[in-house]
């Protein structure tokens, strides 16, 4: 088996892949941030006293967790104009789908974390006269955060990879550029290997940062 890896091609196409890399970054970080923030609110709804809030958030979470992300992406692009007459750009549709999907998973991480804190912590704080929101902010969440960090890291990694699905909507992110280049030059091996390496270089720092943070927090408390 004689195959010569065409490094020249990698060098030549690299600037195009970098453009894709930037779009991937623009999809990844905002959808992660929006998704986790929305997930926190959803988790509060899941834990609320109101049956309506609990039921509504449960339906939302299960809809997004139990259907393929690929369909969600396509759905926001094609079904939205039909349903509410708003045509989103491919990028906006992809960002929205990724953010909402992340919020569903984020909600479950937050809910699990909050529920894992013993009831005594709530009681200890409430007995001092603290309001519910203050207990959450001062007592529960600081303890939960440490427990949730590994799960958040997982989610961040998942979302980075999931963003490659946006290529089906012709969002010019990393995967899209990679597929385009590999069919243009008929060199999928070189191109897709490079794409994989770029994804790794994108994601690894995030997991490294998370591990460092985890280690640092383990020393306290």
């Amino acid at each position: 088996m004689e195959y010569s890896f065409d490094f020249a091609l990698v060098v030549e196409t690299f600037p195009i892949l970098m453009r894709g890399f930037l779009v991937t970054l623009q999809l990844w970080l905002p959808s992660l941030a929006i998704g986790l923030a929305a997930g926190f609110l959803l988790a509060l709804a899941r834990l609320a006293r109101s049956r309506l809030l609990r039921g509504g958030s449960l339906v939302y979470i299960e809809l997004f967790r139990d259907t393929p992300v690929l369909i969600q992406l396509i759905w926001f692009y094609y079904a939205f104009p039909i349903l509410i007459g708003v045509q989103l750009s491919p990028f906006a549709a992809a960002l929205l789908a990724l953010a909402l999907n992340t919020s569903a998973y984020g909600a479950e991480i937050f809910r699990g974390g909050i529920q894992s804190i013993a009831r005594g912590q709530w009681e200890g704080a409430k007995a001092l006269g603290m309001r519910h929101a203050d207990v959450l902010r001062r007592i529960i969440l600081p303890q939960v955060f440490k427990l949730m960090l590994p799960a958040f890291t997982n989610r961040a990694v998942e979302v980075a990879k999931m963003s490659s699905l946006a290529s089906v909507l012709s969002v010019h992110e990393l995967m899209y550029q990679g597929r385009l280049l590999s069919s243009t030059y008929y060199r999928p091996f070189e191109i897709l290997t490079t794409v994989a390496v770029v994804y790794f270089v994108l994601i690894y720092p995030a997991t490294f940062l998370s591990m460092t943070l985890e280690r640092r927090m383990a020393g306290k408390g």
Binding site: G120, Q121, E123, G124, A127, Q143, K220, G221
Partner: peptide
């Protein structure tokens, strides 16, 4: 005020 059987101090 209240003091509990399990203390319920804030560990963090």
């Amino acid at each position: 005020g209240m003091v509990f059987q399990q203390f319920n101090l804030f560990p963090h």
